[in-house]
Design a protein around this nucleic acid. Sequence first.
RNA 1: GGGGCCGUAGUUCAAUUUGGUUAGAAUGCCGGCCUGUCACGCCGGAGGUCGCGGGUUCGAGUCCCGUCGGCCCCGCCA
Length: 590
Amino acid sequence: MKNRTYCGEIDISSSGESVVLCGWIHRVRDLGGLSFFLLRDHTGIIQVTPAPDDETVQNLIGKLRHEDVVKVTGTIRKRPDGNVNPKMSTGEIEIAAIEIEILSAAKVPPFLPEEAERVQEDLRLKHRVLHLRTEKMQRNFRLRHQLYQSVRRYFDENGFCEIETPFLVKPTPEGARDFLVPSRLHPTKTYALPQSPQIYKQLLMVAGFDRYFQIVKCFRDEDLRADRQPEFTQIDAELSFTDEEEIQEIVEGLMVRIYKEVKNIEIDAPFPRITYSEAISLYGSDKPDLRIPLKITDLTETFRGSDFRVFSSAIEAGGAIRGLNLPGCGGYSRKKRDELIHLSKSWGLGGLVYFMSSDEGISSSAAKFLSEAEMAAAVEKCDIKPGDMLAVAADASIEKVALGMGQLRSWAGKNLNLISEVENRLCWITDFPMFEYNDEIGRYQAAHHPFTLPVEEDLDKYENEPGRIRSKAYDLVLNGHEIAGGSIRIHDREIQRKVFELLGFKEEETRERFGFLLEALEYGTPPHGGIAFGLDRMAMIMAGVDSIREVIAFPKTTAALSLMDGSPAVTDEKQWLELGLKPIGKAKGN
RNA sequence: GGGGCCGUAGUUCAAUUUGGUUAGAAUGCCGGCCUGUCACGCCGGAGGUCGCGGGUUCGAGUCCCGUCGGCCCCGCCA
């Protein structure tokens, strides 16, 4: 519609002008002889009232209902003195309407957009369009749009070429569960939806594109979480003739650019680099939230030779003792301390030993087992001040005590109000282990993926301690969320062969699974590496919401259902037959 | 696969602890009145498979079992 104006774009400077506005009925106030209504579009809300003595319009307003779609023709005018609404950005003006056309009458909606935030989420998901009409959701998606644009501009300016990779790809048994797509033309065979474009972007490097990027959907058939959906969006990038430093610099430039363009926030680069093992011991996590100003302290040496059995037995078994300052908790009641001990058990810790500090000195439940000197040393080492409480855990497994203390650190961040919401803290986690032992299947698995380049000086650990080989992999962590992960890839076929061997892949199997990549790698492969970002998580954090469902237009529930369109759905027998398939088992649902 | 919380008018909640008359309120909806409202106001009205199924009981929204659905977490997510 030409010459159409938006509700939020008008201000007092345009008073006197005639306008055509289109939008939804937000609220009607019918006073009898005089009526008002609020008209809403994606830019804002403005009040409309009949032009003087216009009875036709006056009568029509009484018939308007919530969420009707109307076209309003009228004049912008200053509101009479004393009738300005300071709570509205358009509160100084109103539209004197000479014509109102109902373009589409609305059924009574199950909830009004303005109350969407307090209705049950399943109802919001079912009537997603009503929720998306809210100012908050409109803002979230416009932020996400800005994010796309900023990313595309940045990569384009830095010589990256956007190339689409296929959605119907070869199934890969490693990693996450695949969504399979049966082939009609080739019964018993399937495609898979890509878990990521990993292999294809490596092929693009072999193909000589030098720098590639793509904003692309990925699919993983795993259980859902607040920050995990079965289909999600990655910003995927890959570079040739590169190294970790270059990739990290490019990413830092991107993050600085995004924050500036999307949020108008200046962030500092470079971001701190923290090795995986440092992250685990200092923060008890491979994705530490650096907004929490607490570090875990190793107290193993402080308590070596202690008479306290809980400590000495952990040390004798090769374990560790770690402490964390809980600032301001020195006065915690017995009940609160017990609650925390209960929680600590769910974090995999055996319990917590407390040292409460006050002006009178240190008190502790373990005081009778420990010397004054030991207690003083621990408190000193953890920077405990009067009023604080030191929580200490010991375990025969270093990993267990580290991760448990990490949970305690997160708990403290949330519950002791230590997190500043306006802060954005980014860091790199580097030097990940190349392999992780999987107890269930009794072999090593790639911690990142099997094309990741191991750190060269660790290669001699192949035979005896593969668990200690580090890889050239890196994660980018923002406020405790992993938002990107990448690596330098293997371009040497001998190293690739060794990695597959260690992962227990038979040569034949390797050829069958990854043959097309390995073959391509033989025809002249540039050293290359890259990274992939979780765009949904970035949008979630930048929008200040707690779930990626708030930044995905049509998300699934935690049971992977779409309440709006009812997918997945029972499929016609005819469609199954065409694919040469027959469903077994029984559908659940109502 | 496991743990926790939740499900009552269109919506948000109360009544569930301790089983007992006709399941209440607000808002939304419908009708009437009202000429400067802005969460308009006033008057009246309609609206309930208490998620579903089974069990215990003289009697179940309330107790028990199962199931469906939602959220959070663990496992899982190369």
